[in-house]
Design a protein around this nucleic acid. Structure first.
Lengths: 225, 225
DNA sequence: ACGATATTCCATAGAATCTTGGATTAGAAC
DNA sequence: GTTCTAATCCAAGATTCTATGGAATATCGT
């Protein structure tokens, strides 16, 4: 009874998941993939990795079945295997922030001083009433892969130049990749510095989607060009 | 903006959790600790590890703040830092079983053929009506650390000799450490072979507790000795 | 204070992981 | 077919992880 071999095999399988999530680089890749599918080179650039290294990490994620691939022409697009992955990753961050005292200082060091927050319900309510402009400050490709209905896309690097596109006197709600992404924090700072009312959504697109709230897809409608 | 250093630090913190859960041995330790606190030597024995090796793994878990220690006399008792850990571990197994095709065969190889299952609600209902005897087939120490109210303790190794303690004609519901523990499977097989009606609770004590159901603690009341 | 027990610390050797650069494969465009 | 691009494969060195045995530490009982 109780084959040691079989038992070890079983735990080995579970550990595959843990091993896949045991590297900060891979967690960053998961974070990026939670925004939508991306090619290897693209991911490497976004995560600051060499292409070879990035590919190797993606193989590890693939072997643990956390990601799936789709080939289109000469490039291969990776995406998360299911919502389970994003959910598990989110849970992992939450548990880490509760258990590890070092998370909070690291968060502050990266995100800077806290900025005011707006909740999902309030955002939905006030957006429907036209009392708030919802702005997606992630790169355009991530907006195209999925965004809050009615949100306009202004990547954080362009925000300072495109303030005129935002109706004045109306508060802005900015959102980005998630609770540990700088973009929304930066956006609120830029907007406040320009004298606008602005808050950030407490978390980002993946959490919004996991909460079952509506999501639109498609490139932004280019009003100007 | 976007300190690479600070960003890497943050992901490094999250990865600490993943690293801690990246070893099959450590997952087995978490599994054991989910039943209740245990000493190092005890854990080493239960997990089939050398004491030194076990201690080292516990250090890793401790550095990731997944476990806490309590000293009593000459020995040190480890336990999970919070329910979050058991919950995350459970979520990890669930995701693994959904994503990794290899989990199911490994499960079958270890647990053997499926035996009939009883759900939590049915168990509660029928136990209250006296229609089912609930039996905890884990080691006595784990029963003492927390068990289903009204359950009697018959460790799996003793079950075959202690069949007389179970009222005949009444179905038995056996439970153990969790959905991937052999004990309840074995118990049902032993009982059925003895002509008794028996089913296993779909999952074990940790899941019962996490579901917010009532738990009793304390050593079994020794009727005989 | 001394011996006994439980645990951790330390050093070592072997295995696994990560990163990098160059070679290789697969598809697209011409 | 040739050429170009994207991604993977392969090999090597550096780093980290794991298991084990012996030494050191802490507590208990006497």
């Amino acid at each position: 009874m109780g084959d040691q071999r079989a038992k070890a095999d079983l735990y080995e399988q579970f550990a595959r998941l843990g091993k896949a999530m045991a590297s900060p680089r891979r967690l960053e890749l998961i974070d990026l993939l939670a925004q939508g599918e991306r090619s290897v080179e693209d991911l490497a650039g976004a995560a600051g990795l060499g292409v070879t290294s990035c590919s190797a990490h993606l193989q590890v994620l693939h072997n643990a079945r956390l990601v799936v691939t789709r080939r289109q022409g000469t490039r291969i697009y990776y995406s998360l295997a299911s919502d389970d992955v994003a959910r598990l990753y989110g849970e992992m961050r939450e548990v880490a922030s509760r258990l590890l005292a070092e998370v909070e200082p690291a968060r502050r060091a990266y995100l800077g001083d806290d900025v005011e927050v707006i909740g999902r319900e309030e955002l939905l309510r006030r957006a429907a009433a036209g009392e708030v402009t919802v702005v997606d400050v992630r790169p355009a490709a991530e907006y195209a892969a999925g965004h809050i209905p009615g949100a306009i896309s202004i990547p954080i690097e362009e925000l300072a130049q495109r303030l005129a596109e935002l109706p004045p006197e109306i508060e802005v709600a900015a959102y980005c990749r998630g609770p540990y992404c700088v973009f929304a924090h930066e956006a609120v700072r830029v907007l406040r510095a320009a004298g606008r009312g602005a808050r950030r959504l407490a978390d980002g697109m993946p959490e919004w989607r996991l909460a079952g709230l509506p999501v639109s897809a498609g490139a932004p409608t280019q009003a100007g060009a």
